[in-house]
Simulated scan of single mutants.
Amino acid sequence: MQWTNLNERTVYENRWFRVNLADVVLPDGRHLDHFLIRLRAVAAATVVNEADEVLLLWRHRFITDSWGWELAAGVVEDGEDVAAAAAREMEEETGWRPGPLRPLMTVEPANGLVDARHHLFWSGEATYTGHPAHAFESTRRAWVPLARVPDLVARGEVPAANTAAGLLLLHHLRRG
């Protein structure tokens, strides 16, 4: 069954996203007004060190009033290479510059409402460049044993879907 978007109009816009209202036709011919968010791509990155630990951020999300482990991530700027954006975000938020990045996965964490694709990368090396420029984005940055990832996800300590999916895949690839 395919829904058809006949047209949409912007009802709110800023530099990060647009909220649109779409006129959608359902397979049975009925029309549905559907709000959606148009968002630039998101790039995220982490590093796995020699001790098989992954670099993560511990942060509070005021929207859901929750704490959890996350990957360093942010929007891809206009004209910016996705991997370069992931490396930039990682260094800004952690103070670590990743080595060569490898694609991990691309996910659409809320594709019923938001069109953003999240591109996740990882590296096997990083260089510490100093205190993170965007330290305000997290309470702390830590090297977390990759072996703990499944338990952290199961306990709800990795609430962001993109981070949970990426870390579980990385755990599988490194362990399998």
Score class of each variant (00 low, 15 high):
153 V>R: 07
145 P>N: 04
139 T>N: 10
128 Y>E: 11
132 P>Y: 02
111 N>A: 14
113 L>D: 02
150 P>E: 06
24 V>F: 00
8 E>V: 05
149 V>T: 10
171 H>P: 10
173 L>I: 09
22 A>K: 02
174 R>I: 13
70 E>L: 06
86 A>H: 00
127 T>C: 09
84 A>M: 02
141 R>K: 09
6 L>G: 05
27 P>A: 12
172 H>S: 15
44 A>M: 09
69 W>E: 09
152 L>D: 06
35 F>W: 10
103 P>E: 06
26 L>E: 11
16 W>H: 10
113 L>I: 02
120 L>I: 01
47 V>Y: 02
53 E>L: 08
87 A>V: 00
132 P>I: 09
68 G>E: 03
105 M>N: 11
27 P>H: 07
122 W>G: 11
128 Y>P: 09
171 H>W: 13
151 D>V: 08
64 T>A: 13
119 H>G: 08
77 E>D: 13
115 D>K: 01
107 V>A: 11
166 G>V: 12
55 L>R: 11
156 G>N: 02
56 L>R: 08
50 E>Q: 14
157 E>I: 04
2 Q>W: 09
60 H>S: 12
19 V>F: 06
21 L>F: 01
10 T>M: 13
26 L>W: 03
152 L>Q: 04
74 G>W: 00
140 R>P: 01
59 R>S: 13
76 V>L: 00
49 N>S: 10
12 Y>S: 14
97 R>I: 14
23 D>E: 14
34 H>Q: 15
80 E>F: 02
142 A>E: 15
138 S>K: 04
69 W>I: 07
174 R>G: 11
89 E>M: 06
152 L>I: 03
154 A>G: 09
15 R>Y: 13
159 P>H: 07
127 T>F: 05
95 G>A: 03
31 H>I: 05
53 E>F: 02
106 T>R: 02
76 V>C: 01
145 P>E: 00
109 P>G: 04
138 S>V: 09
113 L>E: 01
137 E>C: 08
168 L>P: 08
161 A>F: 05
139 T>P: 00
137 E>Y: 08
95 G>Y: 01
145 P>V: 03
143 W>N: 07
117 R>Y: 03
30 R>I: 08
157 E>A: 12
163 T>N: 09
101 L>P: 08
120 L>E: 02
175 R>A: 13
55 L>Y: 08
27 P>R: 09
140 R>L: 14
63 I>R: 15
35 F>G: 10
125 E>H: 03
73 A>W: 05
77 E>S: 11
150 P>S: 04
142 A>Q: 11
78 D>K: 08
73 A>M: 07
141 R>N: 10
93 E>H: 09
172 H>R: 15
50 E>S: 15
114 V>W: 00
35 F>S: 11
